[in-house]
Design a protein around this nucleic acid. Structure first.
Lengths: 131, 131
DNA sequence: GGTGTGTACTTACTATTGGTAAGTATATGT
DNA sequence: ACATATACTTACCAATAGTAAGTACACACC
């Protein structure tokens, strides 16, 4: 068996792994894409399967075409979303999560779900504070 | 007939639980505070205990005082952070997570942690795509 | 055969938000 | 007497997001 005698956080680990508290860490960019206003909603929407551009626009209430395109491009460039374009007219493009995208989308969904479920508690706390 | 047939999800459920895909749902506001650029980092920072304003400023690399104050006010108004001010000079103010804040901060940390751990994979996928 | 519709975008313009730097009041240290 | 530290706020400017319109082309309709 291959032993791992090294301490929990080795130097190598620290260098490889991101550090969000560090200003210029590339993980910050990934995080801003994923946690952007529309990034969160798109990842959750795509968890239920492949969607076309227009399907996503209709599903995610309030998103503009510009931000939909831009956010999908961010997520694609980070390797979370795959874009499949069929060369037909009118255009037909499909978006779906990559394996990496599925993983992160689940984390995001768990957060989003928590908020949805606990909304009554949160709003109740806000109201109490306002008094 | 003007009657509305029974919906699949009950009316009570729809009113109590948030729906992020709906444009005007209040859960959207909570989500934007929590997933804002600095909201994420502050929640994670506060998981390790009570912090003063200036401690947070030093810990979260790159945050400005303006955004630190503003983000803390959002999180406080949502009931995730508690602010304790001691009436001394120079000022002494402490911030800590409420029970509700602890819960959501853990979700956020799990997401942040996933990104930090998987950063090498993500960057590798980006590089491959660039070829 | 002219008009209207649907697709997946991009682009110019404007509104909103974020970042920077400076200001504030006051105790303590040098 | 002057610099330092605290926890902010405020004015100004830069970056980002939202709005509305444009694009190219096939198909259906009358």
């Amino acid at each position: 068996m291959t032993e791992i005698p090294n301490p929990p956080t080795t130097l190598a680990e620290r260098l490889q792994r991101g550090n969000l508290f560090a200003e210029k860490c590339p993980s910050r960019d990934i995080l801003t894409h994923v946690t952007s206003r529309w990034g969160v909603l798109l990842l959750v929407a795509l968890l239920s399967g492949t969607h076309r551009f227009s399907e996503l626009r209709r599903k995610v209430g309030g998103i503009s075409e510009k931000m939909l395109a831009q956010t999908l491009q961010w997520l694609e460039s980070d390797g979370f979303v795959e874009r499949i374009a069929y060369p037909v007219i009118p255009p037909h493009v499909e978006y779906r999560l990559t394996p990496l995208g599925q993983e992160i989308a689940q984390k995001v969904e768990s957060l989003a779900d928590w908020i949805e479920v606990n909304l009554p508690d949160i709003l109740a706390a806000k109201r109490q504070k306002a008094e």
